[in-house]
Each structure stands twice: as structure tokens, then as C-alpha cells.
């Protein structure tokens, strides 16, 4: 079967339950669509990692696994752009207050690496003012490889 990039791209909007493992309801299809749109395995790894970390953060830290709350995810994939917005119903947080996980005194802490990985692997990451919604963006162009 031959896959061709869809001219108009692929879009998805979905509400996830606040339960562990729910990220797969989005990521399985997201990964498939990234492949169809010609993204490289290393880019797909990067986008997968960032999306996984953000969705888990939203479910566990944002909604605190409250079954009454949802995590809204919207995705857009074209051959040149992958954009994912993840919004939870929690109180939000200040990403500027997340300690540097690479500081010597925090290097061996078990947690706190998700936000740094998102920033490193994506072209752009932006939180809303409340801190309960994050935009992840990766651009693919000739210069970026």
C-alpha cells in the first residue's frame, strides 16, 4: 500500500479520559500519520516523546487523574509541520518555576524531565497564561533536515 501525504494535512480533535495509558488513544494514530506525511523516524521519535510527556503531565499533574476531567488534544500534521495542543482542566502551573533537572543537585532526582525534553525535541513549545494548555510545534524544512 502506498501512502501519499494528504494535501490538506491531517487533523484530529479528541477528549481523553484522565486515566493512565490514555495517551495511546492519540499517539498511535499520530505516529501513523507522521509516517504517512513523510516525517523521518528520528522526528517521529521526537514528536512522540514530546506528546507523550505533555499528555501524561496533563492527566497526572493537571487533572490529577480526576475521572470527571478531560484532556483536550488537537493535532495537525502536514509534511512540513506537526502541531499538537494539549489542554487539561487543572489549575495550571508556571513552567518558569520548573527547576533545572540538569543542575548538579537535581541530576539524580527521579522526576522533572518532561518539560525539558519537550523543549529540546520540538521547534516551539508555548504555554498559555494559566499554564494548563501547551502548544507543541515541530517544523520540518530543508534547513532543519
Amino acid at each position: 500500500m502506498e501512502h501519499r501525504p494528504a494535501e490538506s494535512g491531517w487533523n484530529l480533535e479528541v477528549d481523553l479520559p484522565s486515566q493512565r495509558g490514555a495517551s495511546r488513544l492519540v499517539t498511535d494514530e499520530l505516529l501513523e500519520q507522521l509516517g504517512i506525511h513523510g516525517w523521518s523516524p528520528s522526528d517521529i521519535f521526537a514528536i512522540h516523546l514530546a506528546a507523550e510527556e505533555a499528555i501524561v503531565n496533563a492527566i497526572v499533574h493537571g487533572n490529577k487523574l480526576d475521572p470527571a476531567k478531560k484532556v483536550h488534544v488537537s493535532c495537525e500534521v502536514t509534511p512540513g509541520l506537526a502541531r499538537i495542543r494539549i489542554t487539561d482542566e487543572g489549575e495550571g502551573f508556571d513552567p518558569g518555576q520548573v527547576p533545572d533537572c540538569t543542575a548538579d543537585d537535581r541530576l539524580e532526582m527521579p522526576g522533572g524531565r518532561g518539560v525539558m525534553l519537550m523543549k529540546s525535541f520540538m521547534t516551539r513549545i508555548e504555554y498559555n497564561a494559566k499554564g494548563n494548555s501547551v502548544l507543541l510545534e515541530k517544523r520540518h524544512d530543508a534547513a532543519a533536515g
Binding site: F45, L49, V56, E108
Partner: peptide, 17 residues
């Protein structure tokens, strides 16, 4: 192993300790 989340990293750090 093709994918490892930060939660898995946390387990490796605890194992190392």
C-alpha cells in the same frame, strides 16, 4: 528498545541509587 519516557528514566535513576 525503541522508546523510553521520562517516567522510565526515573526508574533507572532509582535503580542506580
Amino acid at each position: 528498545v525503541e522508546f523510553l519516557s521520562s517516567a522510565a528514566l526515573g526508574k533507572l535513576i532509582t535503580l542506580d541509587r
